[in-house]
Design a protein around this nucleic acid. Structure first.
Length: 641
RNA sequence: GCCGAUGUAGCUCAGUGGUAGAGCACUUCCUUGGUAAGGAAGAGGUCGCGGGUUCAAUUCCCUUCAUCGGCUCCA
């Protein structure tokens, strides 16, 4: 009996039935066989050591394939578990999956507490075990046997996992002395794992449920050679330099102060400038798109938030109330209720719609102390907010226009790596997390999907991520250190119109509730500026840079001429800073480079005589001498977004 | 909020059971130097806050606050 194997390049070859992928690789080339980690058979990833008994399309997976890597890391998690089990007594194991970069294993360490020095010990043990080139052996097992194995071992976590598995589909994998409940697949043997780094020790709730026991999670990453590990660690170091918290301090953008409070950023002058610039952009674009600007107070009475639903649905994220004359006042966590009251201030006709109310509104949210993260997650935030009140007929075009505005901004800022996420409700949570309006949910979700599909914007659909009042679109971005954030949102609200009794008279003079769109394409100042810092690595484009040009006199003899240069550049609208310190030019250049000022002009005798300036571009170096006029022309294009 | 780690000068970090140091930044002086760090002197810290142990605590222990790495949650 033979089987016909089709390779990715279309080539076909006959082999004896029952041949394994590893044996196929061996026949093709010895060096290839050494690299094979797993195999994809008819689209399914499996062990390279399993027999192939039917004709199949086969792709050998190596380190260069995503699935090869994740198999490698999954096997590394098992190796780590083996090392831990051999070093410590009474450890119970939760789950140990591969992740984007590496793997983790959640373990219950019982009475022992692991510290960072334990990680080194475990690393060493892992290398020792890897060296043994132990095979990962797969063994199908009955549910009954599996249960008795883990009962004997006393691992209630594995027993709980087994509860969810069907008899007949259960497999064990064993390498060396360690056996784990696992679907697989795994790499052929531990010898492939050559470089190991256990990254961090963390707590993680069993099955992600904060009401259940917190296990110890160990994150690690492994590679088939030391060089790649070194490169990876180097890359992490580089990413750290882009961390907005580091750049924010270095470039004097923002700060925190213990006496002000956690999550309450103070914007330094450079940060204040960025905010002004962003608002300028937003106000211009919103004015052109027919938005009307409003202003609202930072607090409101409890009654407003009972009506809006924030007290029942969102209270734990609000700062506690202050009480005056037996009335509770809350700091606003959102601008919407205030905007709704503006809509309600005067009677409306269908002829007034759509109404688009915009405000850079400052809000306060009591986020968990443990979740605060630089500018990305704060407790005081200023939202690029607006609410659009429209009829059902107007919804599609309004929603489309909002999406177009998003894309326009992304183009301005050169944001091309983002994900659009269409967040829907979860029917089983109606009345708890979500307003109990099943038909309206379906209807609005369909409207949103139609707009997305017809605009050709790629998106993922996710259940159980909606706001309590309606479905939404989130734009996901990644911080320099790989953490995922929602940058901007575009939400539909079918509920608040009714709750706030917002009405308009239609053509037949009947009262109707508007649909409301909540949108914030430029996110909050906090998160957007945090994101921009990392996105540009601190090198803001000229139009946005708080300081655009550093004027650097070579010695104080040239300060008078430098001052005329400063004056001339300022008159042309540039943001200029002069460095009059009695330092050498090399030092002044270094400092300006470190502050990432886009342009420097070096001014000495030559320049004064020729009525010119020597220009140096940040990160590029000397670009020669120019007149101020020519320099201004050169910068013209960069000066606007 | 939970698990773990950390907290010393504006910043980056040493260090010690006998009341503290370096580099950079800052101030002053010297230097007037042509594309990423010139020299010297000086100033600056109740060693996060509070409590305990001790003859003595920045150091050891506890509490608390903040930050960091995760979890949960979220713009």
């Amino acid at each position: 009996m033979s089987v016909k194997i089709t390779f990715p390049d279309g080539a076909q070859k006959e082999f004896n039935s029952g041949i394994t992928a590893l044996e196929i690789a061996n026949q093709l080339s010895n060096s290839l066989a050494k690299k094979v980690l797993a195999v994809e058979v008819n689209g399914e990833v499996m062990d390279a050591t399993l027999p192939i008994e039917k004709d199949a399309t086969v792709k050998l997976l190596t380190w260069n394939d995503t699935e090869g890597k994740s198999t490698f890391w999954h096997s590394s998690a098992h190796l780590m578990a083996e090392a831990i089990e051999s070093l410590y007594k009474g450890i119970k194991f939760g789950i140990g999956p591969p992740i984007e970069h590496g793997f983790y294993y959640d373990i219950d360490t019982g009475d022992t507490t692991l510290t960072l020095s334990d990680l080194e010990k475990i690393e060493k043990k892992m290398l020792e075990l890897a060296n043994k080139k132990n095979e990962y052996k797969r063994k199908p097992i009955s549910k009954e046997e599996a249960i008795s194995y883990f009962k004997d071992k006393g691992d209630e976590y594995k027993l709980e996992l087994l509860e969810g598995l069907e008899d007949g589909s259960i497999t064990f994998y064993t390498q060396g002395e360690f056996t784990d409940l696992c679907r697989g697949p795994h790499i052929p043997h531990t010898g492939h794992i050559k470089a190991i780094k256990l990254m961090k020790l963390a707590g993680a709730y069993w099955r992600g449920d904060e009401k259940r026991k917190q296990l110890t999670r160990i994150y690690g990453v492994t590679f088939p050679n030391q060089l790649e590990l070194d490169e990876y660690l180097k890359m992490l170091e580089e990413a750290e330099k882009r961390d907005h918290r580091k750049l924010g301090q270095q470039l004097e953008i923002y700060t925190f102060d213990d006496e002000v409070g956690p999550g309450l950023p103070l914007w330094l002058p450079n940060g204040g400038f960025l905010i002004e610039k962003l608002e300028e952009l937003a106000k211009k674009e919103e004015e052109e798109a027919g938005y009307l600007r409003v202003r609202t107070p930072h607090i409101a009475k409890e009654a407003l938030y009972i009506r809006s639903g924030h007290i029942p649905y969102y209270k734990e994220s609000m700062f506690p109330p202050m009480e005056l004359d037996n009335v509770k006042y809350y700091l606003k966590a959102m601008n919407c209720p205030h905007h709704h009251k503006i809509f309600a201030a005067m009677p409306k006709s269908y002829k007034d719609l759509p109404i688009r109310l915009a405000e850079y509104g400052m809000c306060y949210r009591y986020e968990d102390s443990g979740s605060l993260f630089g500018l990305m997650r704060v407790r005081s935030l200023t939202i690029n907010d607006a609410h659009i009140y429209c009829t059902k007929e107007q919804f599609a075009s309004e929603f489309r226009a909002v999406n177009a505005m998003y894309l326009k901004y992304f183009k301005i800022f050169g944001i091309d790596k983002f994900k659009m996420r269409f967040s829907k409700h979860e029917p089983s949570k109606l009345g708890q997390k979500y307003m109990n309006e099943p038909e309206l949910w379906i209807e609005t979700e369909n409207m949103v999907r139609d707009v997305l599909v017809s605009s050709g914007i790629p998106f993922d659909e996710v259940a159980d991520e909606a706001a309590f009042y309606g479905p939404k679109i989130d734009i996901q971005i990644y911080s320099a250190i790989g953490r995922e954030f929602t940058l901007a949102t575009n939400q539909v609200d079918f509920a608040q119109g009714k709750r706030f009794n917002l009405k308009y008279a239609n053509k037949d003079n009947q009262e109707e509730y508007p649909i409301i769109i909540h949108r914030a394409p430029l996110s909050t100042h906090e998160r957007f500026i945090g994101f921009l810092l990392e996105h540009y690595a601190g090198n803001f484009p000229l139009w946005l840079a708080p300081k655009q040009i550093a004027v650097l006199p070579i010695s104080d003899k040239f300060i008078p001429y430098s001052e005329t240069v400063v004056k001339a550049l300022k008159e042309k609208g540039f943001r200029v800073k002069i460095d009059e310190r009695a330092e050498k030019i090399g030092k002044k250049i270094r400092d300006a480079e470190m502050m990432k000022i886009p342009y420097m002009t070096i001014i000495g005798e030559k320049e004064e005589q020729n009525k010119q300036i020597s220009v140096r571009k940040h990160g590029k170096g000397d670009i020669g001498a120019l007149t101020i006029e020519d320099f201004a022309v050169l910068l013209q294009e960069e000066s606007v977004y």
